[in-house]
Amino acid sequence: MRPFLPRLMAVGLALVLTAAQVHAFETRARAAFVMDQTTGTVLLTKNADEALPPASMSKLMTLYMAFEAVRDGRLAMQETLPVSQHAMSYGGSTMFLDTTDRVTVEDLLRGIIVLSGNDACVVIAETLSPDGTESGFARLMTRRARQLGMTNSTFANSNGWPAPGHRMSMRDLSLLANLLITEFPEFYPMFAETEFAFDGRAPSNVRNRNPLLRLNIGADGLKTGHTQEAGFGLVGSAKQGNRRVIFSFTGLESEKDRAEVAEQMVSWAFRQFSETTLAREGERIAEANVWMGKFARVGLVPAEDITVLLPVLAQGKVKGEVIYNGPIQAPVTKGAPLAELVLTPEDLPEMRIPLVAEADVPEGGFGVRISTATSVLAAQFGIGGSAQTEATQ
């Protein structure tokens, strides 16, 4: 009979971290989400899962699907596409396309990224749509978003033009930004381009509206948005040193507010947090009890360096806690996942880091089985007994 504790916790760790209370960033935005991409740490959430009008920020989903199509060979960068009357009919920010144009995919992508072209989005959408319509592509966008984990996103068109039910959350937009950065590094530099003078036909619309790109703070994307319904918003990213921050917000009253909040948010994320290496790969964090093994315990170690993001100003202490289902049944294989290190820094989400077996623990021999059985029987009848006698590894 094997004794079993469903959640046995080892708390006497040598690992003690320093951390301090960080006051959450106060933002005028209606909704916001900030994450450190390097460590995956969420730094700020404000109404982050509320489905809101995303305005032109939803063009990022059209871009993602266009990049997928290029990668899969369904589109070619120098391929030229026709412009429909429907695409030409859109107002707002456009490339000023008309039905006599045939435009390369590369120009259309830049037209969406730099110029926020509503018409360019529709040309891409109608090309990739299952039924050749923008609405058909919007349904495809919604389905693909769900597959990617964007649970609060529903699309009615390809470009964010105000429409009932066209919604995204700030968390979903940040997730999408992360996918664009990590999955399409060959295309991502386009998001940092500050100007695109397509065909010289729209001198009033050649500049990227992202207010951070010219500030020399590491900003390199991604997309602004504005409608009367949504207010002013931005999905942004910046890299300083080895760290990258991704953020999104919406609901501000002016371009000036958007620029100020964006710069403040980036400054806060980089200045108030820093990376800390808590333990190295293979460094023993704790031990787990082993049942019927040659050794009574096995070391628990991280499979890779544990690097987390913590507040810069350190005052208090944050203790780690190791949680595992135990005792662990022998045999145990080196590198097998056995436990989690749970960290709870103040004002930051709980962090869970997997721990693995430090070494092999084979099944115990005849002597171990006899002594273990004796111990169990003795414990049941309250007569005392011996424990496993073989050495601890």
Results as ranks from 00 to 15, higher is better:
G149D: 09
V235H: 03
A230E: 01
N242A: 15
E186F: 07
F198G: 03
G221A: 10
A177E: 04
M168P: 02
L212W: 06
F232G: 00
T194H: 11
T151R: 15
I181S: 04
H226L: 03
R243N: 07
R214Q: 12
A192L: 09
V206F: 11
G231F: 08
V206C: 12
F191G: 00
R207T: 06
F198A: 05
N205H: 13
L173S: 05
F191N: 00
H166T: 00
I217A: 01
G241M: 02
G225Y: 08
N216K: 15
N157A: 06
A197F: 15
L213K: 01
N157E: 04
R201D: 07
G221Q: 02
G233T: 01
T227R: 10
M170D: 04
G165N: 07
F155I: 01
L180F: 11
M168Y: 09
L213N: 02
D172Y: 06
P162T: 00
L215M: 07
S237P: 04
G225L: 11
T227A: 06
V245A: 13
P211C: 09
G160E: 02
L212Y: 07
K223C: 10
R207M: 10
G149S: 11
W161N: 03
L234R: 01
S158T: 08
E193A: 11
I181D: 08
M190L: 15
D172M: 04
A219E: 04
L175T: 11
L234M: 04
V235P: 01
E229G: 07
N216Y: 14
I217P: 02
W161D: 02
R201G: 08
T227D: 04
S169K: 00
S237L: 08
V245Y: 13
A177N: 09
F155R: 01
S174R: 08
V206D: 05
F191A: 01
P203H: 11
P211N: 03
R167M: 11
N205L: 13
P162E: 01
E186M: 12
N152P: 04
G233Y: 05
P189M: 06
N216C: 09
A219I: 03
L222C: 13
D199T: 10
L213D: 00
Q228N: 14
I217W: 06
N242M: 15
P164W: 13
R209C: 06
L213F: 05
N178P: 01
P162W: 07
A230V: 06
L213P: 03
T151V: 14
G200L: 10
G160I: 02
M170E: 11
G236Q: 03
G149L: 12
L176C: 05
N210Y: 01
F191Q: 00
N152A: 13
E193G: 06
D199E: 14
F187T: 01
P211V: 06
T224G: 05
T154Q: 13
G165K: 06
G218I: 05
K239N: 09
V235M: 08
G218D: 09
F196I: 07
S174M: 12
R209H: 13
N210D: 09
M190G: 06
P164A: 14
F198R: 03
P211H: 08
Q240E: 05
N157T: 02
R201I: 10
R201K: 13
A163N: 12
M168E: 10
T227K: 08
L176D: 00
S204F: 15
A202C: 15
N178G: 15
D220G: 05
G218Y: 12
P164M: 11
L234P: 00
A197C: 14
F232C: 00
